[in-house]
Each structure stands twice: as C-alpha cells, then as structure tokens.
Simulated assay, not measured.
Amino acid sequence: MSQYEPLHRVDPVMRRDAREPEPDFYMPAMPPLGLIRAFERWWRAYRLRRQFRRRYLSLLAHDDHMLEDMGHHREDILWASKLPLKVDADQTLARCRALRRRGAGSVKWS
C-alpha cells in the first residue's frame, strides 16, 4: 500500500444507509454563551452581596456612636442590605456616605 491510497477503503458490499459506530462516550455541546454570561453576572452579584454582608452587617453589633465615628449610620447599612442583587450595595453605601459628609442629608437611591 502506498502513502496515497486511502487508509479506510469503502466496502462495496456495505449498504449505503449503514451508520458509523457510536463512540463509547458522549460529549454534549457547549451551552449558549448568553447563558454562561448570565450565570457569571449572577455569580458576581452574589459574591458582591456576600462581601457586603460580611463587611457591614457585622458593624451593626456596635452602638450608634461607634458607627458614627467610623462614618456609617445604622439606617444606611440596613437600607443598603435590602437593595436588589443587581445594585452594588457597597458602592451605593459609599456614595450615600460621601453625600452625607457634604451635608446633603440622607439621600437614598432605589
């Protein structure tokens, strides 16, 4: 056999409708990229929410005077903990703190 001959010869006796043998394993197709991106966005929002809770909700154990010394207010922390997942509570609380420092009072976003 020369190098130019095909390795697998077609058997003329083989029927045309015969199928190739199936492999021993099955590898499913990749899920849609939109689904993967949606899952990544959800996972990022979940992680940010967990970070916020770990950082700020533990501050609620302190009294109001201690929170004021740290630059926080109890109402703001409680309000930010109830924001939806798509809103970054950490950034929103930082903006609220910055506005309070400027003397704008308590301004909240929904």
Rank of each mutant, 00 (worst) to 15 (best):
E20S: 11
D90R: 00
R15N: 12
C96Q: 15
R97K: 13
A18L: 11
R15S: 12
R55Q: 14
L57Q: 15
E75W: 03
P21D: 03
V87N: 04
Y46D: 10
G71A: 09
G34K: 14
E20C: 06
H73G: 09
S58N: 09
Q91P: 00
R16C: 01
W79Y: 14
M30Q: 05
R15W: 06
A94N: 11
A98T: 05
H73I: 02
R16P: 00
R19S: 08
R41L: 05
D64V: 05
D88F: 01
R100N: 13
R44Q: 12
G103F: 14
A38D: 14
P32I: 00
Y26Q: 06
H73D: 09
P28K: 14
R74A: 05
T92P: 01
A98P: 00
L57K: 07
P32W: 04
V87W: 00
W43R: 12
A89Y: 01
R16W: 02
H72W: 13
G71T: 07
C96N: 10
D63G: 10
A45N: 13
E75M: 06
D69Q: 11
A38S: 09
R50L: 13
L85H: 03
S81T: 04
V87T: 15
W42R: 02
R19D: 07
L93K: 03
L83M: 10
D64F: 02
T92Y: 04
H73A: 03
H65R: 13
D88E: 05
